[in-house]
């Protein structure tokens, strides 16, 4: 097997991913998630986060969160300089625990939504959104 320069770069990049990025991303999100959950365990399922796979422009990215039986849903953009995006609290006259908005994403990244259910449990959903650059001007 030949070990080319390209392979070396790929391995290097992979190592950087394993070593650096997730830890930093976790640290970024964790702080806010903990403040929201009070350190409780966060499960999967029962919440959906709908977002485009590729955003045409990071300045205006439509998203939708939905979690039946939630009292609150917090949205974090883990790759933004400041991760919090919004927190939706649903009142007694909310017909569904569902909301849409438009958000800013600084770069390609994971967006996370965490629901606080009315039984006190927490559930999480995430979406990976690619933020593209323009044709000429950027």
């Amino acid at each position: 097997m030949q070990f080319t320069r390209r392979d070396a770069l790929a391995v290097g990049a992979g190592a950087a991913l394993v070593a650096g990025l997730p830890i930093r991303a976790m640290a970024m999100g964790d702080e806010y998630i903990e403040a929201f959950t009070g350190g409780a365990e966060v499960g999967e399922g029962g919440i959906t986060l709908t977002a485009p796979e590729i955003a045409e422009n990071g300045n205006t990215v439509p998203i939708e969160v939905s979690a039946e039986g939630a009292t609150e849903i917090m949205v974090l953009a883990l790759g933004n300089p400041v991760p919090p995006v919004a927190t939706f609290k649903f009142g007694p006259l909310a017909a569904s625990q569902d909301a849409k908005t438009r958000i800013r994403l600084a770069k390609t990244q994971d967006v996370v939504a965490i629901a606080k259910m009315d039984d006190g449990t927490f559930a999480k959903a995430s979406a990976s959104i690619k933020v593209t650059i323009g044709g000429c001007g950027g």
Binding site: N59, T60, T132, I133, G135
Partner: peptide
């Protein structure tokens, strides 16, 4: 690059750009 080239039609101007 990541942008889909149009025919450069201007029937939609003024344009609200997401950018």
């Amino acid at each position: 690059r990541a942008d889909h080239l149009s025919q450069g039609q201007i029937n939609g101007f003024p344009v609200y750009r997401l950018k």
